[in-house]
Design a protein around this nucleic acid. Structure first.
Lengths: 140, 140
DNA sequence: TGTAGTTGTAATTAAGTAAATTACAACTAC
DNA sequence: GTAGTTGTAATTTACTTAATTACAACTACA
């Protein structure tokens, strides 16, 4: 079981915008070509990134631009923008309240799961779009 | 997008075994009753936990037992036993090699994703089954 | 030895999700 | 007004999760 590819697609999207927004008009079709997915998915993800305040989109004329400097956008911001699930793990819904363990499993596990997810998100926050941009430029 | 419930079911399973193995024969039907899922799923998960060396199962007569002390079993061990995906995120498969970003996105992102996953697993390793057991007993 | 209860596993099914695709109204520069 | 684009809805295909049924193989015990 894995996260959907929305996170990696969104990161690729932002990296393209950061890389090309000066030279080209970065449209959903342009992005779809680089990422090799459907333009509609790009438009949906751009909508989420826009709602999260990470990009600005020119309606009508087209083109996406960073809404803030690349060093103020972290992987955590991107993850939060596109993955709307409140919790990392799907908890089995109806443990048996007749069983002592079934009755207490949620109160025991919920805080652990929150802590684990927080650790993941904190690690995500350590990488900025600017860093990715620098590394990508180095590799070109 | 979330992980399947295999991880929480497996943890619930081990907690039941730790709690009841002295008093009762903990069968897949017993566990299925406490967790409120199908016994076949329990048997499959018990098989994975057994392959990972976390439990021992009495074939024929039935019943599952911890294969090592509860304080030597961490949430990370449980996660690794039941979630076989190599990577946390589903990376979009075919970025366009014609695009400079598409060409380098994997080399830039893969190590970041590994680091993020490692942070999650390290946090998981901080919680043992013994701790969960103590907390559960406290709540009963 | 036979029986009852259990595990291990395969096959089938239903429900849910991911992603591609088609379609089209609304928008904006020119 | 036109061309190119965004935003969004609806449909479809493929895949995954989980429940269910079925049954062979195993083991303690009468």
């Amino acid at each position: 079981m894995q996260f959907s590819s929305r996170f990696t697609i969104a990161t690729h999207t932002l990296l393209c915008i950061a890389m090309f927004q000066k030279e080209y008009k970065v449209t959903s079709n342009f992005l779809a070509g680089s990422i090799n997915v459907n333009p509609v998915m790009i438009r949906n993800i751009l909508g989420q990134l826009s709602a999260a305040g990470l990009v600005k989109i020119k309606a009508g004329i087209g083109g996406a631009y960073l809404a803030k400097p690349a060093d103020e956008i972290t992987l955590r911001d991107i993850f939060k923008a596109v993955e709307k699930e409140e919790s990392l793990f799907h908890f089995h819904e109806n443990p048996n309240p007749e069983c002592p363990v079934g009755r207490t499993i949620h109160s025991v596990m919920d805080s652990k799961i929150d802590t684990i997810q927080l650790a993941m998100e904190n690690k995500m926050a350590e990488t900025t779009l600017f860093q990715l941009l620098e590394e990508a430029k180095k590799n070109i």
